[in-house]
Design a protein around this nucleic acid. Sequence first.
DNA 1: CGTTCAGTTGACTAAGGTCAATTCCCGTGG
DNA 2: CCACGGGAATTGACCTTAGTCAACTGAACG
Lengths: 191, 191
Amino acid sequence: MEALINTIKSFIRLSPEEEQLIPPLFSEIKLGTGEYLLEEGGICRVIAFVSEGLLRFYTNNDGEEKTGFFSSEHEFLSYYPSFLTQTVSDKYIQALEPTKLLVITYDQLQDFYARVQEGERFGRLAIEQVYLSAIKQLDSFYTDPPEKRYQQFLDSYPKLVQRIPQYYIASYVGIKPQSLSRIRNRLAKKH
Amino acid sequence: MEALINTIKSFIRLSPEEEQLIPPLFSEIKLGTGEYLLEEGGICRVIAFVSEGLLRFYTNNDGEEKTGFFSSEHEFLSYYPSFLTQTVSDKYIQALEPTKLLVITYDQLQDFYARVQEGERFGRLAIEQVYLSAIKQLDSFYTDPPEKRYQQFLDSYPKLVQRIPQYYIASYVGIKPQSLSRIRNRLAKKH
DNA sequence: CGTTCAGTTGACTAAGGTCAATTCCCGTGG
DNA sequence: CCACGGGAATTGACCTTAGTCAACTGAACG
């Protein structure tokens, strides 16, 4: 909870009274490995703050899974297209490790917006952050070949590499596990 | 200007007094075909509302242009990663037709946020919109082959197709003009 | 009528996908 | 302690599709 408040404070100012407001608005959820925060056909009812653990966001197209991103400690996580409009989603958010989350519901977030001076501002800044990283990904998909995307993943998340099975990384990069294996082979030979 | 105010009103409520505030905050810019709203090495200093015309957003990677999106009448347009942080960008926004824009600068937008009751809310909702469409594009890049992406472009922007040269459409779809030509050929033979 | 440039077409290349066999790793049970 | 089972990862042969290079067509414009 302390990490959550500090993270919020890195976006906006919080008066001591406002700080008191925060804990009751969030509740803790625990997920075991393989359990879901969001499943196909469900609505993403919360924004989650990861206190502990690791999750992946993915879609299932005709039996083929595509991983959009991974979220680990001290990151906010949601599927905004479903959360913002409170409509049914076709995406999944799954824990890859035993995970602890602090979650806020849509209604409680509206409450936060109403009662915290710079609440709306926080909402805007937070979504800006998420938006910027989505753009960055989109950009990389447009311009970078799989090999470069893999290397960027290694560079950006060196600590996560050991925690994530290779076939999930492949699906994040946008290729099959076999192809990632060949790319790794090629890269290894370069050194 | 009327179209702009109506578009803002589709997001938030505006009191009559607040409505008066809007026009002075925006200024009109005209661009001829081929002229730029944003060039590489520049900072995106405004958010623009397209009153008339058509623009494309693109990057230049080693002499190869990649088109991110097109914007036409009554759409908001900016390159947020540069605008939000007011940092140098490596992207271009170029008019494909004679174009009229209503633009608001970063400072004037902060003014708007401060003086309009639901201003921050508008900022949040607006960026949410932009974010959702970015996600949709990202999703389509992950999952759809070029052929499908082309058909979706035809379906989504039937009116724009005649206004945009094919090689820009190819670069939007993510392939070379030659490949798009072959895809069009294949599709034509199906009917 | 010739220049120019978008668009098409053809031959060939490169890179990821597919299918299948094999190896590696790790945990379980005899 | 070792043998086995199962999923992950690798490797090989072949396929599919976009990229590349280049020639050609066709329409617009002076």
